[in-house]
Simulated scan of single mutants.
Amino acid sequence: MKSPTNMDILKKVKPFMGEVCSLYDENGQFLAKGRLQISTFSMLMNNYQAHEPMNDIGKVEVTVKDIDMAVEEGAYSIHSIVLEQGEYIYLEVKNFNYRCDTNNLTQEIDLNLFSISNTDQETYNSFLTKKHELDWTNILIPNGCTGGDSASKADAFESLCQEIIQRWGAKVFSGIGKGTDRGRDGTFQVEADSWIPITTNYSNSWILQCKYSETYKNLEIRDIYPEMIKVIMHQPDYYLLMTNRKITNDFNDWFDSKLMQDTNYFIPFKKIIIGRQQLEHILATKEMIDLKRKYFG
């Protein structure tokens, strides 16, 4: 059987350009997700379309960007799967040493080291959902976070939440320290049309509530409802709850209900919850990756 040419391999690599990839260590342990780039690909394809000779091109520069955890120089395997014309195509580059520059991994790799094959939907779905889970039990307590010298992990979580919403454009932010906080961990304002999908152009007042647990225990109605009652006196437009705790279906149903069943007070403000999975997704974005390193190392 005729061996595939460099051009054959490049054609197969094309669908993976800019796609999500997984990083594994030398022992096959999943580490992180990133985005795959091959910087010389466009140039090579332009040469090919111009019918210029390709036989002397045996390497391409592979870069993994937007990595959702801190990495360093070393050996990694790259895996990626794409759906192309109804087929699931699997790419792998095994155990190759990469340089690290500002958390991007880069190396020139021989084209014949790319392994490309077909796979199935189950493997594809597993690839999409696999991610680097954060160790919330060991969240770091950086200098300057809420609580000062006596800051706890709960304080660190609160500071993390505050930093996230300030990156989102929160204005006139005021954090609330320990003590009688009247049910709030912070107050802030945002321009409505810059953060939430409504058409008004006025500023909205928000209350931020943070709930952290080292043991990832269930978030209960009794943990939140008394705090929400205290918030009523501040007359916010929105109540934002950010938590790493487990959110049950029962809690979600209660939190989303307009009448807050089985309670004695009508809650006049809108309620939004951002849970652990959403937080991990937020911290995996390019805009928040430095916060992820700050609080998780």
Rank of each mutant, 00 (worst) to 15 (best):
L259C: 11
D110C: 06
D101K: 12
Q49A: 13
M288D: 04
Q37D: 15
N95Y: 05
T199D: 10
R184N: 07
S77D: 03
Q107C: 07
Q278D: 09
K294P: 10
V62R: 00
I57Y: 12
Y98M: 06
T137Q: 13
N104F: 02
V64N: 00
L105N: 01
A151R: 05
R99N: 10
I67N: 03
Q37E: 15
I81E: 01
P236C: 04
T187G: 12
V20I: 12
V60N: 04
Q235L: 15
S257D: 11
A284K: 01
E92G: 00
K130H: 07
D256P: 03
L283N: 03
S80H: 06
D262K: 14
Q29S: 08
Y212G: 06
D155R: 01
G183F: 05
F30W: 01
N201I: 08
I272Q: 12
L83N: 08
P236E: 02
I141C: 10
S80T: 07
Y98E: 01
E84N: 07
N218E: 12
R182E: 13
D185P: 10
S152A: 06
L31Y: 03
I207Q: 06
C21M: 06
K292H: 08
K217T: 13
C21W: 05
P4I: 00
W206G: 01
Q162R: 14
T137K: 14
T146L: 11
H51F: 14
N143Y: 13
W136H: 05
I165D: 01
Y124G: 03
T243G: 11
C145P: 09
I272M: 14
Y88H: 04
N112K: 07
D149S: 14
K246T: 14
E87G: 00
S174Q: 15
T285I: 01
E108N: 09
M260E: 07
L140C: 10
P142A: 02
S213M: 08
E133Y: 11
K217V: 09
D120G: 06
K294D: 07
L31R: 10
E122L: 10
I289F: 05
T146Q: 12
S257C: 05
S117I: 00
H79F: 09
Y48S: 15
G297Q: 11
F296D: 02
T187K: 13
F251N: 03
L128P: 00
K33N: 14
D250V: 10
F114D: 01
